[in-house]
Design a protein around this nucleic acid. Structure first.
Length: 435
RNA sequence: GGAGAGGUGCAAGAGUGGUUGAAUUGGCCGCUCUCGAAAAGCGGUGUGCCAGCAAUGGUACCGUGGGUUCGAAUCCCACCCUCUCCGCCA
């Protein structure tokens, strides 16, 4: 949610960027409700002041009938004002919540994801002397994936992963957690990219996979609810990304400045209903209802937010480079960055089997848009309490990461080589074995 | 799932209807004393909203949401959470 003071002072700008992000918002209505709301609050405050005044006069035991009578009148009047306030306040908050975050100046203006800008392309494409297959074909050949039985048990878009595909996933998890908890790795990435950011390592986290409606909504990630799984009879939802449970972890807390940045590398199975994607990416395990993911989340002071965002992208890139997967970096346009985002970057991995780049990572910078409703704050060295800035970024999706490895490291006979950096995590194994 | 206890400020912990934003102790910060430190003494130490250039003032907040009352941290109801015991279970 935006700061209402910002909306008051920048109404025209708010209308402009909301349109650019593809949101129809009632800014004038928000301002009108804001005014009405403040009037009602003032009125209520005055009535309460008088009520407190009367109460102070009653303290000495002898209740005066005249004061009690006035109190009774006040009570009725206050109840009316409070009721009107409640109504206006709800309308106001609903309307204000609907306004998206302001994009940073370098976010390209665009009306569809086709207008995302390719910022750079890294890594030479693998050259094959044969027709490369897609991951689904290779996985089938190696018997790594059983979707028929998964469909029997759970329905479409689920799979049983088997054998070395499973070992590959656990190797990736170990490898990435090792890297991100290693200060020298961060030093290296910071130096290579000329960044000014802390080298504090990421703390590995296994979060709860469910969260309450209130926190989900405060993160501004609950919508569209169609894509979320609701737990029947409980005020709980299955998370769609570790961001949702890591970002909300410190709601209602005030950090000391010396404790920031807070950096987490979370591992979580994420759940998505994939509503409206019928028939899309049905082959293999590219788009599943359930997939594991390593996710970075960090909380910083305001002025470090953008640098943190750039660091997270640099870390994503470094990991892709070390895994030897060609990729391109997309600067997402206003339409595509998402409602709470001020800036967003996608990484797309080259998939030889599909002959194109496909989205594997995203990095989101939310400024204080999420923390305002979460009430995640920091007490600065000056004593000032401020909202933190939130950043999240995929460290590696497990499914699309392995997919990229399978397709880029395939041999003609359908076997798959293990990327050099992962071999120590697979007992030195250099080829993934079929089942 | 059953039975019980409890949720108050940075922490511990008082407070069962009215000058209580909240005793007391500890922590932390500042000052005094000291060459310096310790000890001691004194003072300070929450967040949101509204008004104001500011100083400041008003208001709300004692798990959350309702209710009773002229007045609620205190009484009533619902919910959430924590702890103990039983049951179940990895």
């Amino acid at each position: 949610m935006l700061d209402i003071r910002f909306v008051r002072e920048n109404a025209a700008r708010v209308k402009e960027f909301s349109t650019q992000k593809g949101y129809a918002v009632a800014v004038d209505e928000v301002l009108r409700l804001d005014e009405e709301r403040r009037e009602l609050q003032q009125k209520a405050d005055e009535l309460r002041a008088r009520r407190n005044d009367i109460a102070a006069h009653m303290k000495n035991g002898k209740p005066e009938q005249a004061l009690i009578d006035e109190g009774k009148l006040l009570k009725t009047e206050l109840a009316e004002v409070e009721e009107r306030f409640r109504v206006v306040d709800t309308e106001f908050t609903t309307a204000l919540k609907a306004i998206p975050n302001a994009p940073l100046a370098d976010v390209p203006v665009g009306a569809s994801e086709d207008e995302n800008v390719v910022a750079k392309t890294v890594g030479g494409l693998p050259q094959f002397t044969f027709e490369p297959q897609n991951h689904a074909q290779i996985a089938t050949m190696n018997n790594w994936l059983d979707k028929e039985r998964a469909a029997k048990v759970a329905g479409s878009r689920f799979a049983y992963l088997k054998g070395d595909l499973v070992r590959l996933q656990f190797a990736l998890i170990q490898y990435i957690i090792d890297k991100l908890s290693d200060q020298s790795f961060l030093d290296e990435v910071i130096a290579e990219n000329g960044l000014t950011a802390s080298n504090k390592p990421f703390l590995p986290i296994l979060p709860p996979l469910m969260l309450r409606t209130e926190l989900y909504d405060a993160m501004d990630r609950l919508e569209p609810r169609d894509d979320r799984y609701k737990i029947e009879g409980e005020d709980l939802w299955l998370q769609g990304s570790a961001e949702h449970v890591l970002g909300s972890m410190h709601a209602d807390e005030v950090f000391e400045e010396k404790d920031l940045p807070v950096r987490y590398i979370g591992y979580a199975t994420s759940f998505r209903r994939e509503a409206g994607t019928y028939g899309k990416d049905m082959e293999g395990m590219f788009r599943m209802h359930q997939f594991d993911k390593l996710e970075m989340e960090s909380l910083t002071v305001a002025e470090d937010g953008l640098n943190e965002h750039l660091l997270l992208v640099a870390l994503q890139e470094k990991i892709m480079q070390q895994l030897g997967i060609p990729y391109q970096v997309l600067l997402k346009c206003t339409f595509d960055i998402g409602k709470p985002n001020a800036r967003g970057v996608d990484i797309e991995a080259w998939l030889p089997g599909q002959g194109k780049y496909r989205e594997t990572h995203t990095a989101d910078y939310m400024t204080d848009y999420q923390s305002r409703r979460l009430k995640t704050r920091v007490r600065r060295a000056t004593g000032q309490v401020e909202l933190v800035h939130t950043n999240d970024a995929t460290a590696l999706p497990l499914s699309r990461g392995p997919i990229a490895i399978i397709e880029n490291y395939q041999n003609e006979d359908g076997t798959v080589r293990v990327p050099e950096v992962l071999r120590p995590y697979l007992g030195g194994q250099s080829i993934l074995k079929s089942v």
